[in-house]
């Protein structure tokens, strides 16, 4: 159901959701529960496969390691003890859980946005925010040629693998050699990219490009979409405010 929704509405609501989640103070579990229910409802509406969602959103979690030391450094009710005087505290656990839950909820919504919206539509939404056109043009070109160059990178890696099948880990060629070959591939990608950019510039000029980035204007949002946006903002603002007022 979410796939047809205007990308501008989805982008703005996703960002508001993440902002509301971040604003929710630690310990405001009722608010986080409501936010989680909201996220779950959105994922259901998006009709994505649960496994796919779980795998993709779990990829962002290793960074949570950075929060783990808080378990031991936050003072409070002792929970358990590790050797060398490391004491975990209940308060520390809550802080870590708070960060992990917030991160996961944010990733979940960001992922649902990209899974239901083509990036080209997100680009249109970004233009709607009056982002500088030059920047949007660069991002659009990056996106357009990312796949072309990823394919070239994969061809380079395949060619390297085909010619270095006998090299066993740690033996054979030296580290410096391996680094130089990989660096050569990166340099190769840049040169190919630069050559392609020349040809693209010709193709753009051939159709009248004069250096000024231009786009066809988008139709304005419908009343229904505007109402949905307003409702979403209101609900998220209420949630965040509740959290700040009662648990801040």
């Amino acid at each position: 159901m979410l796939h047809q929704l205007d990308a501008r509405v989805k982008v703005n609501l996703t960002l508001s959701f993440i902002l509301a989640t971040t604003l929710t103070p630690p310990g405001a579990w009722p608010v986080l529960t409501l936010l989680a229910a909201l996220a779950l409802a959105v994922v259901i509406l998006a009709e994505l496969r649960a496994r796919f969602v779980l795998v993709r959103t779990a990829l962002a979690l290793p960074f949570a390691l950075a929060a783990l030391p808080l378990l031991f450094t936050v003072a409070g009710t002792p929970l358990f003890e590790l050797p060398w005087g490391w004491t975990a505290s209940w308060e520390g656990l809550l802080r870590v859980a708070n960060i992990v839950v917030k991160t996961w909820l944010s990733v979940l919504m960001a992922f649902t946005l990209t899974a239901t919206t083509p990036f080209t539509a997100i680009l249109v939404a970004l233009r709607g925010w009056r982002l500088p056109r030059l920047l949007v043009t660069i991002v659009a070109l990056t996106w357009r040629y990312l796949f072309v160059l990823v394919e070239e990178a994969q061809r380079l890696m395949r060619a390297r693998a085909a010619r270095s099948g006998q090299i066993v880990e740690g033996r054979g060629k030296s580290l410096a050699w391996r680094a130089r070959v990989t660096g050569g591939m990166a340099g190769n990608l840049l040169l190919r990219g630069a050559d392609r950019a020349e040809r693209i510039y010709s193709a753009m000029s051939a159709r009248g490009y004069d250096g000024e980035p231009r786009v066809v204007a988008q139709p304005p949002l419908t009343a229904g979409h505007r109402a949905l946006l307003a409702l979403g903002y209101l609900f998220l603002a209420l949630l965040a405010l509740t959290g700040i007022l009662f648990w801040g």
Binding site: T120, W143, R144, Y145, R199, S202, V216
Partner: peptide, 17 residues
């Protein structure tokens, strides 16, 4: 003028653009 490699000719994210 249409160039040989359509990846050079099609430099926008979508066909419409």
């Amino acid at each position: 003028l249409v160039f040989q490699d359509p990846n050079d000719q099609l430099f926008c994210p979508t066909v419409f653009e």
